[in-house]
Design a protein around this nucleic acid. Structure first.
Lengths: 351, 351
DNA sequence: GTGAAAGCGCTAACAG
DNA sequence: CTGTTAGCGCTTTCAC
């Protein structure tokens, strides 16, 4: 097949007997060009199926109009909502997205950051891997004044904007809810990670215990990778505890559900024997029986806010580089899995 | 902050007192350059923090090394697995990804295709929106010899490669399984769409009925958008059927689960009163009680195969433009929701 | 209001 | 093995 020659501003200029400079200006709707000429040029561009060459433009402007995204995993309901939110904002602002997953591995994260840098993304949105302990691999960006925004999985730092929810407060409320249901031996399942999300959820859990004079026992904290399978494994540990716990607060729904199902299979009644609270409001939380009490975590919005904040930086709409942290709202959804005081199976919707 | 000047091959050339051509060649590890010179140049590039300018390179090569992806929705477990698979292949081949969602709207799909085209993606991966009826908006790509590959949601056509599973066969097996469990009045819930996936699943359903001398009744086909909520709505219709159906085959798990839960709430026993089979092997299928019998649909692999096929086209590894259809394997997972012959709750794993 | 011309950083043909 | 040079298509001074 013969490859059609690309139409350039030279072709348009020639046809219309004007200079390429005029065409270039007209195409940007520069008012300095005579309105009639502009219209003629637009019409001709349309007719010739002209499409602007972004390389040439970028080469001159030294901007890519591309935003990089690095996330730990793509295939979770939460993360795909986030991406959907990002995509929504970014596309309508005329930017593009380059997506990369670290697979929860800091080494891959470092490699991705480097690739993004080499591809000259205009900005970067990042949710950190489990084992990321410092942010030095993003120094290259700050050195070149390329904005980087972290969301959800962040590390406290003075240089970059973080977007997250108040994990401590949410975790505290979750734990206090269990306490209010009469739970005295509350297990917390979380990730073996230094990331804020998990640390803060643990802190919230501790605070709630302290506030109600329940002694914190580190044996009641089970750590893993928070997968469904990990929840099943945690259930086995829990079944060996003597006495059994009467409440479990899990740092994510998926893991909570794995754990719940395994305990149910072992004959434990939920919430009567053990009450459950999860985190994330994953779709599975409304499918598992009893429905899982959880914290609604606005993934789509978080993506939108992160993207919008980045684009504001980029376009200079918000030169306030002072904004270091943006806290999003969250809500506590009480469902059947945690309500000891009501008959099991009865639902109290809170949505 | 002062923006550092970008390092170019000119800077390296000057420092090393060689020509830019040599630098350019060396950086591509062209064996024509003296190995010592190459090493020196690599070292200097490293030292000066040189990064190649992709615009300039692309401007010369007229390739973007970017692949576009258009999908109906990002936030489903299936689709995020697909994207993860694509991302895996594409990144390790040194390409980038531009992702866009059509939100199940053909108008948006057309707009996305145009944007992708203007951004000069080297190739395109597409899963079609519900209401897409023809592929004319992809003509611009074929005219310019830009490969487009469709996956999962495709339309039969002679010009592009399709990647999918044998939906008809899978649907037939699903339906026959219900028949083998003694079901006689089988409802099929699917999408109001002309896309192959749904049409073929319907055909498979019909074939199975025919093969077992059950008369097809179009009142037994409920169409909607296959969402969880839609499943709940379908349940209301089903409850009004007289007599009630004794088996339901749903074209996706999410919808099946919505329907199951609503029916259960209405006092229907599953599978005793109504047996269920879904499609997709979504995570929820293993959470719902009873666990949902379904067709395992390899999203991650489908993404990998689609991406690999595209990249092979691009790199010329496979000039066989003849490959028009690639059929992936699938498997039927029998779980409790469809087994009338066994005690409810008992699981027969097939995985 | 319009045009001429320089140059963004790189590649590749050609010449040595 | 290395260097010279002509663009790729566009933006942007500077001049008219």
């Amino acid at each position: 097949m013969i490859k059609e020659k690309e139409v350039t501003i030279y072709d348009i200029a020639e046809k219309l007997k004007v200079s390429i400079a005029t065409v270039s200006r007209a195409l940007k709707d520069d008012p300095v060009v005579n309105i009639k000429t502009r219209k003629k040029i637009f019409a001709m561009a349309e007719e010739m199926n002209y499409r602007s060459n972004s390389f040439a433009r970028n080469l001159r402007n030294s901007r890519t109009e591309t935003i990089g995204v690095i996330v730990p995993k793509l295939n979770s309901s939460f993360m795909s909502s986030v991406i959907a939110g990002i995509e929504n904002i970014v596309n309508s602002a005329g930017y593009h997205l380059i997506i990369s997953q670290s697979s929860e591995d800091v080494k891959k994260e470092i490699a991705s950051a480097k690739t993004m840098f080499n591809n000259r993304v205009d900005g970067l949105l990042v949710s950190l891997a489990f084992d990321t302990a410092d942010l030095s691999h993003f120094d290259i960006f700050s050195k070149k004044n390329i904005p980087v925004i972290f969301f959800d999985r962040v590390i406290d730092n003075p240089h970059y904007t973080n977007i997250l929810i108040d994990n401590k407060k949410a975790a505290k409320q979750a734990t206090e809810h269990l306490i209010s249901q009469g739970c005295k031996r509350i297990v917390h399942i979380t990730a073996a990670s230094k990331l804020n999300v998990y640390e803060e959820r643990l802190n919230g859990y501790k605070e709630a215990l302290a506030a109600h004079k329940i002694k914190f026992d580190k044996n009641n904290v089970i750590t893993g990778n928070l997968s469904f399978e990990d929840g099943e494994a945690a259930a086995q540990l829990i079944l060996k505890m003597k006495p059994l716990p009467d409440g479990i607060f899990v740092a994510n729904d998926n893991c909570a559900v794995g754990c719940m199902l395994a305990l149910k299979q072992a004959g434990i009644r939920i919430p009567a024997d053990i009450a459950f609270v999860g985190f994330n409001n994953d779709p599975v939380s409304k499918v598992v029986e009893p429905n899982l009490t959880t914290i609604n975590y606005p993934g789509y919005e978080m993506g939108e806010v992160a993207a919008q904040t980045l684009i504001n930086h980029l376009t200079g709409t918000s030169t306030i580089h002072a904004t270091n942290t943006i806290i999003l709202r969250w809500e506590f959804l009480i469902r059947a899995s945690s309500q000891k005081n009501k008959k099991q199976g009865q639902k109290q919707k809170n949505e």
